[in-house]
Every structure is written in structure tokens, then in C-alpha cells.
Design a protein around this nucleic acid. Structure first.
Lengths: 348, 348
DNA sequence: GTGAAAGCGCTAACAC
DNA sequence: GTGTTAGCGCTTTCAC
């Protein structure tokens, strides 16, 4: 330690002063050490601190893709809370690659971060390893069935159910379902909610109203969802008649649908109602503003951080599972219609 | 080292095997070490590696706000390139706080990251310290005048000049300028480009066509820009007559303007042309699709990474300054008008 | 009150 | 070919 030499004291004293240990050190020495450390622009070497058994104040945050506005928001919210609690967030995108997610996880545990907040795209693949980690891990956003640690997810099933019911209550019967490939548990649940809401209201599920994109998703998700929305809206318009409403599995795909519809002079919500999921910032910026089911990022981020902080404090405490309730944000893309008045388009 | 004991060899041998040093080790021993290391699920302690003088493969990326779609895109692009080159990106948001930016910078240098890619919001404040860093730092996105290291920025002045000229060439004369507070060098340059383009085309700058928001920006930037756009469009509509065109200093504020205009039945581009800056993904998703000046994030990210990687390879090489050329993305919000035909609105 | 010294896990120089 | 050992910078116990 250079400071020790320069100030002519022992390294022990330097350590005691700089770490503010409540250890008896004469004012004179203390002052000298501080003076020298400032003069030398001293920064402790975190590696040797950690080697010596120090604890990290970093928190890893892993999400599928940071360029997706929903995750950008979720990460930003989480980041802010970490910072406020003097943790340093380390943000990682898995880009839908289990391999990359694994790498990140390994990197984070190697660093012995204080904790990990993870939206996994590969639950089955990692669930067994999670508990063996040295750093506590809370799962958020995506469903986490079978995980025994802390977790917090949306109630996707309920989201799907609520959105569909909401449309039905507004008089819609022919409700289309539009989605990218249903390859995630979250999507499966929304779809299930959709089907069961229809069933519970005595509406027969018709496969002709289910539009699921075929392609994979290794490109940028946001653009792809948008394009899927545009495309699927196109095939939807080719049907002999229009549905009453469309349930789009996320806001971006909904905005894609709006775009094609507007182009083809189909008025929303006059000719067709539309509801999305997520409530990303842009949903309120499009015209007409999109009615959607909010998956509150602030709530998710807040709860995830709280669970993690609590666990860091008390590693022995019982695991907690939280479900965030969906909330319908009523804006301008769903209109009330009278179920008796069957609207027909001018298509053959 | 547990492995050494377990396999009954020295730690040196273990290190040699596990690091694949081209050091003579008998196959038998090598196999035994590998077998044990796998059985014990061994992970090297990166702290002691670093302590011993190892080099980090992490790269710090600092931007103002990750929830801003432009920066989300820029970060995602940068992240991907880092990953592809086996660097681990560490993403930090400064949230427009010089204090926080400083903290991040300090954290990154403490970790002795391989390099830093920085969009600084506090150039003056940090420029002197940058060169004393142990990790090389390339500045991107924001102007970096006075910095002697590598840097890469947009030609904001040219952007502003080009956009304004483009509008003028399309027959517009009364061109409004709409912006959040002009508190950043980038914005000052765009504004300057606007003014000088007007001047060079013999159009007098009229302060009544300059709309600059008053408020600060410690909230979420994206929402705030949008709201500013809405508000300023409102005051713009209260003027006795409409301008021919509006130059909005970023896409989000442009989308805010579109929103108010659509609400008030002002048709874009028939009644008013509009051009933005950035070319965020959403600009092509709104209706009508926004004409804008692209600040290519892929180009910026690519160049920034290249400069940094080069410097890591060769710390002595000369500093490089790159300016990314703006590019007008023609979509549907600017129409050509004949300069002679003075359009008047029906307002008094 | 202060200092000396051990040791965290690893790598590399040196011995054998 | 393989083992021994010093030392990276820090914290902490123990001795003075």
C-alpha cells in the first residue's frame, strides 16, 4: 500500500481509517492518512477486497431484450430502485438465447454479485442450477413454476381472461386472437385465458379467428412483432368478414395491426375494436390511443427488488411468490356495440 | 485450491491444465485434473485472477437513459457487437445526472474494465479525468470537443442544416423549430444548423417560429418529450396562422406534435409538414410514417466498438475522431408545396 | 493506539 | 514434467 509508506504508518492503520472502522486511531494519524489518500487519488482495489471475502454490491438483471420497449421500461425501473438502494445494477440481455442467458448467469455468479433478478427464457433449463447459486436469485416477469425461490410474475392467464371478457362485455362476439409464435409460457397463458373466457361466455372458439405468426424470433423482437402485426392484419382482412374485435398479445403487434388497418381504411374502433397487452409508453402515443392490459413494470420492478433486498438481508427467510394483477387501461380502441346488431362489412 | 488436493497434484499443475497453457503435462494428470474440476463444478475466482494482474473482458457502456428508445437501440447495437467479440458489456444509465455518471465511471475504472464507451452528459466536468483513466474510453453519440481520445459523434449541425434545407427545397418557408430545453451541445448544433440553413436560403429567422420547452428533465425523458411535443403543438396552433412545416428536434417530440395535430384536425402533411430526428423504430410505425433524419445507431455502435477494440489492441495508436453523416429518411410527413402559393389557414 | 503478519485464490518464476 | 513458493492488495487477528 503506497499510502502506508507515504504516511509512514502501517497498512492496518490505513485500512482502519479509510474504512471508518470504529477503532481507536489518533486524530493526527487519521488526518495524515486521509490527506495522503486524497493526494494520491487513492482507490481501493476491489479485487483484493473481494478476495478477502468482501461482499459485492452489484445486482445482475437479465431480460430477453433491452431494445424491446417493455423490457427497457422494466429494466429502467429496476435499475433506478437498485441505484436508490446503493446497489449497482448489471444489465444483461439474453436475446432469446438460452446459451447467452447461461453465460450471463455464470458471469454474474462468478462475480459473486449480491443478487440476480431474472426474466428467464429457459426456465426448465436452469431451474435446477438456480438453487445452487451462491447469489440469491429472484425470477420476475415470466412464469416460474417449479422454482422454489422468490418469484414474481404477472397473472397472464387472468390478463387474457380479463381482456377477452372486457371485449365480450362490450358486446363483441367474434374476437380474433393475434400473436407471434406461442412459444413462451406467458403467451400460452394469455391464450388459455382467451379461450376460457370465450367458453365461459358461451362463445365457441373458432380457429379461423386465431392468427399466430409462424416465424421464429431471432431478429429484433420489436420490429418483428410490428411486422407480424401488419402481416396478420392483412390476412385477417382477407377473410369474408371482419371480426368484431382483435385481441393482440402485445402492444407492438397491436400497433402493427393498427397500421395495416388504417392503411386499408378500416376505422378503429368503429369498424373493429382492438386491445393489446403490456401498456408500453407508446400505446398512449399512437392515434387512437390503444386500450390495453397493463403489466405494471413499476410494480414488478418494485416487488422484485424488495424480495431480493429482503433475501439478501435474511437468506433464510421463506420464499415468496407474488402475482401482479392485470389492469385494463381504457383508452380509445374499444367501442361498445350492441350484440344484437350484427355488423357486416361490405366484403362478399 | 480444492482441486489440487483432490487430484493430488500441485496448484501449479491445476492452473496449467485449466488454463490450457502449452506446458508439458502428462495426459494422465491432465485428465485427472479435468475430471476433478468437473466433478467439483469448479469456477475460477476471478478476483484473485484480477488481483494477480489479469485483464478484464468487460466493457462499460454509459448512456443517459436506457428507457429512451433511441438509447435503447444504441445500447442494444453496442451490446451485440461486444458480445460477438467476447466482451461482456456493462450497461449504465446516467439519467442526466453528472453525479451518477461519475459514480459509474468510477465503478468501471475500479473494476479495471477493458474499456468504456460513453455518451457523456457532462463533457466539461469529466474531460480532464478521462485521460488519467486506466481503461481506454471512447466517447460516442454526444459531441466531444476538446477530448483527445477516440470519439465518434453525429454531425448534428449538418443534421439540422440538412433537415431545414430539405424542407426549404420542398417549398416550405415558414419553418417552426420545436425542442425541449436546448441544454445539450447536440441540440445547440441542430438549432444552429436550422438557423444557418434559413439564413443561407435568404429566410429571416423569426423567433415566433421557435418553440422551446421551459421545463427541466429529471423525469422520464421519453414521456416528457412527448408531452412537450403535445404542449408546444398546442401553442403553435394558437398562432394566427400555421407555419408551413415543423422541425422537431427528436422523433418523440415529433410524435407528440402529431398527436395534438391529429386531435385538432390538422392534417399531416397536407396542412403542415413535419420532420424529426433520430429515426427510432417507432417513427416508421406511426401513421403517417414520420420523415426524419437518421442518426444511425448501428453505424455509431459499430464504429465505437471498432475504435475501442483497436485501442485495446494498441494503446499507443493515434486517436481517431469520426463523424457520422446524417441521412434523411423520406417517409410521409413532408409534402412538396409550391412556394408561390401562400397557404392561409382559416384562422383570423 | 499501532504494527506485524497471515491468508484470501491464483499465476508465474524458479527449483528439482 | 511437476512441485514449491512468492506475491498481487487488502482485512483482520494478535502481539506489543
Amino acid at each position: 500500500m503506497d499510502i502506508a509508506k507515504e504516511a509512514k504508518v502501517s497498512t492496518a492503520t490505513v485500512s482502519r481509517v479509510l474504512n471508518n472502522l470504529d477503532y481507536p486511531v489518533t486524530e493526527a494519524l487519521r488526518k495524515r492518512v486521509i490527506e495522503v489518500s486524497e493526494r494520491l487519488d487513492y482507490h481501493p482495489n476491489i479485487f483484493s477486497q473481494m478476495l478477502k471475502g468482501g461482499t459485492s454490491n452489484e445486482i445482475g438483471i437479465i431480460v430477453p431484450s433491452i431494445s424491446n420497449p417493455f423490457y427497457a421500461q422494466l429494466v429502467a425501473d429496476t435499475e433506478r430502485i437498485c441505484l436508490k438502494n446503493s446497489y449497482i445494477p448489471i444489465i444483461c440481455s439474453s436475446y432469446n438465447s438460452p446459451q447467452l442467458e447461461n453465460n450471463h448467469l455464470e458471469m454474474l455468479t462468478n462475480k459473486q454479485v449480491a443478487g440476480i433478478i431474472l426474466s428467464t427464457i429457459n426456465l426448465e433449463g436452469i431451474i435446477s442450477r438456480l438453487s445452487s447459486f451462491l447469489s440469491p436469485c429472484v425470477l420476475f416477469d415470466q412464469p416460474s413454476e417449479g422454482y422454489h425461490g422468490d418469484s414474481i410474475t404477472f397473472d397472464f392467464y387472468k390478463s387474457g381472461y380479463m381482456a377477452t371478457s372486457y371485449l365480450i362485455e362490450n358486446g363483441h362476439r367474434r374476437i380474433a386472437f393475434v400473436s407471434p409464435p406461442i412459444d413462451r409460457t406467458s403467451r400460452r397463458y394469455i391464450y388459455k385465458g382467451y379461450r376460457e373466457a370465450l367458453r365461459d361466455h358461451g362463445i365457441r372458439l373458432s380457429s379461423k379467428w386465431v392468427f399466430v405468426a409462424a416465424n421464429g424470433q431471432h431478429q429484433e423482437m420489436e420490429t418483428q412483432d410490428y411486422q407480424n402485426g401488419r402481416l396478420l392484419a392483412g390476412t385477417l382482412l382477407n377473410a369474408p368478414y371482419l371480426p368484431d374485435a382483435v385481441l393482440a398479445i402485445n402492444d407492438i403487434i397491436a400497433i402493427g395491426i393498427m397500421s395495416t388497418l388504417t392503411e386499408r381504411n378500416v376505422q378503429i374502433p368503429n369498424d373493429l375494436s382492438l386491445i393489446g397487452f403490456d401498456d408500453i409508453a407508446f400505446s398512449s402515443m399512437v392515434t387512437p390511443a390503444l386500450t390495453t392490459v397493463r403489466q405494471s413494470t413499476t410494480q414488478t420492478a418494485g416487488t422484485a427488488c424488495k424480495l431480493l433486498f429482503d433475501r439478501i438481508q435474511n437468506p433464510q427467510k421463506e420464499a415468496v411468490h407474488v402475482k401482479i394483477e392485470p389492469e385494463i387501461i381504457v383508452r380509445s380502441t374499444v367501442r361498445k356495440i350492441h350484440p344484437k346488431v350484427k355488423k357486416q362489412t361490405d366484403k362478399p
